[in-house]
Structure formats: C-alpha cells, structure tokens
Design a protein around this nucleic acid. Structure first.
Lengths: 240, 240
DNA sequence: GGCCCCATCAATGTATACATGACCGTGTAT
DNA sequence: ATACACGGTCATGTATACATTGATGGGGCC
C-alpha cells in the first residue's frame, strides 16, 4: 500500500501498467479488464479506470469500441516511422531555434554535454556505452529546449515518449564491431554540427542534420533486426 | 436525458464541454470543478471525470497539479506555431506518400475534389466560399490518407484537431478585396501541384509545397488580426 | 435442420457515500 | 514583521452498489 511510485492509487496503477506494457507482458491488442486489474492490484475499479485513461493520453492504450481499453499495437513499420517522425520534429525544433536565435547560455550548456561525450568517446572501450547513452539523451533534451515553440516541443516530447522512438533507444549495449564505434563518432559529429548550425542561424542545415541523425537510430534498429538480437527492451511491445 | 450527441452521459458531457470550451465560454486557464459541472449537467461526478479525461486526451484540457483539470491555454504564438507544425506534418505525409508511391485510384479521387474546387472558383462570387471551405477540408483529408505511415497520419490528425490549426480554419467568410480571390487561386494552384508532385514521386517538392501552403493560413490569420476582425470562432479559446 | 428469440452473464456505465489530501486562513512564537 | 504551525473547508480520490448494455448460448418454433 506504500509503494513509492506515486501518492495515489491511480498513479501507482498507471506506473505498474506502464511497466507491464513496456515489458511486453501485455502485447499490442490485449484488452484490459477493469475488474481483473483491480483485483490483481487490490484496489477498486475507479483508480484503475483513471490509470488507463492516463495511459491513453500517453498513447500507450486506445479506447476500444464499446468501451474499455486495448494495448496499442505497433508494427515494425510503425517503429521505423516513429523514428522518422522524431527526426522531422527534432529538425523542426532546431530550425525554429536557429531562425529565432537561441540563448548563448543554453547553447553553451549543450556544448558542455558534447564535451563530456567527447571525453567518453576517447576512452573507446565498452565501458563508455552507458555514459554515452545517458549523455546522448540529455543532449537531445537540451536541444529540444532551445526550440522557441511550446507546441513543437510538446509534440516532440510526445513522440519521444514512445520507447522505441527515443533518441537513446538504440544506442548499443555491446561493441561487436569497429563499425559501431564509427557510428558513434559520426553521431557525435552531427551533434556538434547541429549546435554550430543553430549558432550560425542556419535553419535548413540544422533541420537536415536532425533528420539524418535520426537515420542512425533507424540503421541501428535494422542491423539489430538482422543480427536476430531479439528481446530488445524498447521493442517488447511490437507485434508483427 | 435523451440528447443525441452520444449514447452515454460521459460522451454527451464531453461533447458539451468541448463546445463550451471551443466557444470561448471557458477561457484558457479556467479550472473545471467536477461537482459544479455535474450539477449543471444533472449527472454524477463519475461521467464528468470521464469526459474531462477524454478532453485531456484530445489536448483541450490539462491535468492540474494536485488533481483536477484546467482548460489549456493557447497564445497567439501557439496559433502560429500550430499552423507551422501542421504544414510540417502535412509536408512529411506528402513526402512519404510521394516516396512510397500512392494508389492512382486515391490520387484520382483527390483530383476529383480539385475539379470541384475549380468549378466553385470559376463562379468568383461570395457564394462559393462555403463550398470552398468544405471542399478544401475534404481535399486535405484525402491527401493525408495517401500517407503510408499510420503514425504520421495520427499525429497530423492530432494537430489538425486544434480548431485554429485545421486547414479550413481561416478560409474567408467574406470577400472584402480582390486580393482574397487571388489567395484562393494561389492555394488551389498549390493543391494541384501537390498532387502532381506525389504522382511524379517528387518528395521534396511535395513537402515544400505543403509547408508553403500552410503559410497562406498564417497570412490569413495575420491579416484578420490586423483588420481587428475579432470573434473568429477558431480563435475563441486564445488568451494573450 | 436452420433460424430466431430470449435468458443469462459479464463487462462497462453511473450514482453516491466516505476518505484523503491540498489550500488558505488565523493564530502564535520568534 | 515574518515565519511557521495548526485546523477547517472544499475538491478530488476511492470504494462499492446498482444500472445498463452487449455478447453468447440454448431452446423452441418454423
């Protein structure tokens, strides 16, 4: 009764359900029954409904015809499209930031993160992968914050909330080939170029870079699919 | 008790609330109280909560800190940004359609709508404005349907659901100057060009056209603001 | 034998009573 | 005078009983 993941039953239930869905425990298309869930969690139907409603806002559930909720289905094609869309929206965010001009202070903060990534990359061993993934996610947060449009930032956040569309979803966890190091080096070069473009108010360049940058995530996804490395956590909720 | 706008109290309440918000009756930032609304509508709190939850999914309400819901606030800048974003997403939809290739049958259907707009435009009087607005909305639906990506279509729909970001939000209702006719002629030329681009698989052209096309809506919005033509229905919920 | 109707059940929809928690005023102590 | 603590009030959070609806299966009629 005193779980730490929220102060109300509804928030805890939403957290629990989210975890279970993201873990793939309830694949796309699974119907969620209020009574069953309320039973399992030892709470009443009311907070369960509330939780499902919140997850529907997040895009993890869909309202079913005739009432109730169903886990949203994502196909392989949806994953690719979501990454593409993330690139488009990040590109728009950066273009608007470049056109409007960004605070030098905020740009400097983003650069500072890039410096830390540079340092991690210099190590060149497998131990840098975890910091890389974290710093990468942080950097993408920082550049999204440069966008002057709250509407664009919000929609970008929304797309990034899909586990497989987030910028750090397909950063490697192992170093199987030298090509992987190269891929990180290239991505980091794009990071630097994006900031340069914003600073120089080169909107079109910033936009193009963001789109191309997202293609690295797509390529990583596809190489992962080929190497039959199933069970990637971000892909747990994909159905074919 | 037998309103026609939905079979359940929750759906009717959602419909009612949506109308009231879009009418500007409850400006951005207004807090909604369950008991008060339940009283007014002569239903219990439960369907009111359900209705508010649905409107939050639509993006019309936001969950307030400490519980409850607040009408989402949109600034003038948000309106401009939403139109820009709509252009970006429509552009992406058309680019993907062009790159993947679209069904000739579907393209023909869209062209048929354009023919009807051509006919309406030929009249050249104020009576054509209503059909124009309707056909324009229909055309934008048709071209969105050409996009092979369900994810992109969904996000585009989401943005278009904002009343001021929909393609036909700022089509004129009166003909005050010859320049307005020109604006419609230009927009229609862009419509034709978009379909041409998709047919010829010219993705970049289709994307650029969609973005430029959205700029007409933005220009209409700004000329409207200048002419102090307040009370536009799509702008009722804007707060400054 | 096939089809339709009705009973039954299981799921969500709704109402309401009660619990909890947040906000705001007032009071006091520093 | 300001900061903090306390308590009351009001809104939301939760549980639960009851209503309604939609699906399903069996039995009877054609």
């Amino acid at each position: 009764m005193a779980d730490e993941r929220g102060s109300t039953h509804a928030k805890r239930a939403a957290y629990d359900l989210r975890q279970r869905i993201l873990k793939g425990e309830m694949p796309g298309g699974t119907r969620l029954y209020e009574v069953a869930l309320a039973d399992e969690m030892a709470i009443s139907r009311t907070p369960v409904r509330e939780a499902m409603s919140r997850l529907a806002e997040e895009g993890l559930l869909e309202r079913a015809r005739g009432g109730g909720f169903v886990v949203r289905s994502f196909s392989q094609a949806d994953v690719v499209d979501a990454i593409e869309l993330r690139g488009v929206l990040e590109g728009t965010a950066l273009r608007l930031a470049a056109e409007a001009g960004a605070e030098p202070r905020a740009i400097a903060e983003a650069r500072e993160i890039l410096t830390r990534i540079d340092t991690a990359l210099a190590a060149g061993d497998v131990a840098m992968l975890d910091p890389y993934g974290e710093l990468n996610g942080l950097f993408h947060e920082e550049i999204a914050a440069l966008c002057p449009s709250a509407i664009v930032r919000r929609e970008l956040d929304r797309v990034k909330s899909l586990p497989f569309a987030s910028p750090s979803a397909f950063v490697f966890k192992r170093l199987d080939s030298p090509a992987m190091i190269n891929s990180l080096v290239i991505a980091q070069a794009q990071h630097h170029a994006m900031l340069d473009a914003i600073e120089a108010r080169e909107g079109a360049r910033a936009e193009a870079l963001a789109r191309e940058h997202a293609r690295i995530a797509r390529a990583n996804l596809e190489s992962r699919a080929k190497s039959a490395d199933e069970g990637h956590p971000a892909l747990a909720l994909i159905v074919n």
